[in-house]
Amino acid sequence: MNEKEILNIIETLKWTFAKTMAYWPHYYTVRQSDNAELNEMYNYLYNYIKDNHYIQLFNGEEYKYCDIGEYSYWIMDDDINSSIIINRAKKPVKIV
C-alpha cells in the first residue's frame, strides 16, 4: 500500500480531538470492530505505521511513529489484535 492509498484511508477514518490532553493537542481514531470496512482500514493504517515507523519517546515510554502528510501518527500497542487507538498530531513547522 502506498502513501496515497493510506491518505485516502486516513480521510475516511473519524478523528476525535483528545480534549483530556488539550495541553498536548492531538487526535485519535478508535477501531470500529462492528464495521468490517472501517476495521480493515484501521488495520491497514496500523500496519503501515508499524512497517514504516521510527521510535520516539513520550513520558519515558517508546512509541512507534510514522510521518504521513502533515501529521505524525503513532500506535500505542505492538499487538494489532489488542490495539484500539491510533493517534495523530500535526508535525511541527520547520523554519528554513
Rank of each mutant, 00 (worst) to 15 (best):
M1K: 07
N2I: 06
N2C: 05
E3R: 05
K4L: 09
K4F: 08
L7I: 03
L7D: 03
N8E: 13
I9N: 13
E11C: 01
T12I: 07
K14Y: 06
W15T: 02
T20R: 14
M21T: 12
A22Q: 04
P25V: 00
T29Q: 05
R31E: 09
Q32W: 08
Q32I: 07
E37W: 07
N39H: 12
E40L: 11
N43S: 13
Y46R: 12
Y46T: 10
N47V: 08
H53F: 10
I55L: 13
I55K: 15
Q56M: 10
L57T: 10
F58W: 10
F58L: 09
E61Y: 14
E61H: 15
E62N: 15
Y63G: 03
Y65R: 03
I68G: 00
G69H: 01
G69F: 00
E70S: 04
Y71P: 00
Y71Q: 01
Y73D: 01
Y73G: 00
W74E: 01
W74C: 01
W74A: 01
M76H: 11
D77Q: 14
D77W: 10
D78V: 07
D79T: 11
I80Q: 13
N81P: 08
S82I: 15
S83A: 15
S83Q: 14
I84F: 15
I84W: 14
I86E: 06
I86L: 06
K91V: 03
P92N: 06
V93F: 02
K94A: 06
K94N: 07
I95A: 09
